[in-house]
Simulated assay, not measured.
Amino acid sequence: MSTNDTKKTQRTLKLGSTGPEVFPLGLGCMGMSGMYGATDDAESIRTIQTAIDRGVTLIDTGDFYGMGHNEMLVGKAIAGRRERVQLSVKFGALRGPDGSWGGVDTRPAAVKNFVAYSLKRLGVEAIDIYRPARLDPNVPIEETIGAIAELVKAGYVRHIGLSEVGAETIRRAHRVHPIVDLQIEYSLASRSPEARIFPVLSELGISATLYGVFSRGLLTGSKPKGPGDYRAYLPRFTGSNREKNEGVVETLQRFAQERRMTPGQLAIAWVLARQPAFVPVVGSKTVAQLDDALGALEHPLSKEDLAALESLGTVAGERYSDEHMKHLDSERR
């Protein structure tokens, strides 16, 4: 089966009890705006359009990716294809002109300001799923979700999502307005949501869109490409963790080769097998990477494969620095 036939053969998944039906893989566009080294806008647009033509419906972006660059890029790519996609947009992160991180702002007035600019950059009348990128410690989640609910009522937003928040925050948000999905990092290397967060999602009828399935390229053997690549500062890519993880990755690569899969396909197939009700969001920057990702749908893993894979070793290091981890609501115990 070729990837051109994927749309005809793959089922769709519903995001939450009230959300849209989506293709079983989403396309994450953050890497198209320089977070992982050099990019090419023409190739990025071609990748987004090829993904849509092959059945992918969920396109994920953030207003702070490239300080607006990513939304403008997505807007160009979906022109004339709007009715075939669902746009997932994160907001709230504050950036400086030098790319620095300035915290999070999810006050109701800020929410309405952010959405106005996103609608303009994307060239759309409504955003399908709108979500705060992180929990703002200075604003009760009820106020933020209430502001987005007003945008839903006004027709500027269709559904509400969350990102990187913990179980109690999910419950509080869902009491204000139905939440269709939580976006959270999940992979062979990052499994903490299984303990407390996924059970709450199941209880409340909320889906998940899972990013970081390659652990920022670690699981596929990709390495930081210079100081502009922020992975060079992440624990899993530095020091003794890097050396240990290279050995784990080599083992995973052999496992994939034995099953005639690429490492990327193996990483995606593991997520699909472990969490079949959730949607991996894959950060493909090129058509070749997209082709590889879609190929994972043709290689489902058996229970025996899962058991063997999970016995091959664990990845060393946290996904972010200690300071960053302290501020993640999803990592609070």
Rank of each mutant, 00 (worst) to 15 (best):
S2T: 13
T3L: 15
N4F: 04
T6N: 05
K8T: 12
Q10T: 15
G16Y: 06
T18Y: 10
T18H: 03
G19C: 11
E21G: 13
E21T: 15
V22H: 04
P24F: 14
P24W: 11
L27E: 05
C29K: 02
S33D: 07
S33Y: 00
M35W: 03
G37R: 06
G37N: 04
A38F: 11
D40T: 07
A42W: 01
A42V: 05
S44P: 09
R46I: 01
I48R: 06
I48T: 00
A51S: 05
A51H: 02
D53H: 06
D53Q: 13
T61M: 05
Y65S: 12
G66L: 01
H69W: 09
H69F: 06
N70S: 14
E71D: 12
G80F: 11
G96S: 14
G103P: 02
G103L: 11
P108N: 11
V111P: 02
Y117G: 15
K120T: 11
R121D: 03
R121E: 04
G123F: 10
G123V: 09
I129H: 03
Y130K: 03
R131P: 07
R134N: 10
L135A: 10
D136V: 05
V139W: 02
V139Y: 00
I145P: 01
I145H: 01
A149T: 01
V152R: 09
K153P: 02
A154Q: 12
H159E: 14
G161L: 07
L162K: 09
V165M: 07
G166E: 03
T169A: 09
R171M: 07
R171Y: 01
H174F: 08
H174G: 14
R175G: 06
H177D: 00
H177A: 01
D181M: 08
Q183K: 09
S187H: 03
S187V: 04
R191S: 13
R191G: 13
E194I: 10
A195P: 10
R196N: 13
R196F: 10
F198D: 06
E203M: 11
G205R: 10
G212F: 08
R216E: 11
R216V: 10
R216A: 04
L219A: 03
T220G: 11
S222I: 14
P224Q: 01
P227Q: 06
D229L: 14
R231P: 15
A232T: 01
A232E: 00
F237Y: 08
S240E: 09
R242N: 06
E243C: 11
E243H: 08
N245R: 04
R254Q: 15
F255T: 00
R259S: 15
R260Y: 09
M261W: 00
G264T: 00
Q265Y: 04
L266R: 06
I268M: 02
A269L: 06
L272W: 05
Q275R: 10
V279L: 00
V281G: 04
K285C: 02
V287G: 15
Q289F: 07
D292G: 10
A293C: 07
H299I: 10
A308H: 15
A308D: 14
L309R: 05
L309S: 09
S311D: 12
G313S: 13
V315E: 01
A316Y: 13
G317I: 07
E318I: 04
E318V: 02
Y320G: 03
E323K: 08
E323I: 12
H324E: 14
H327Y: 13
L328V: 02
L328D: 00
R333Q: 03
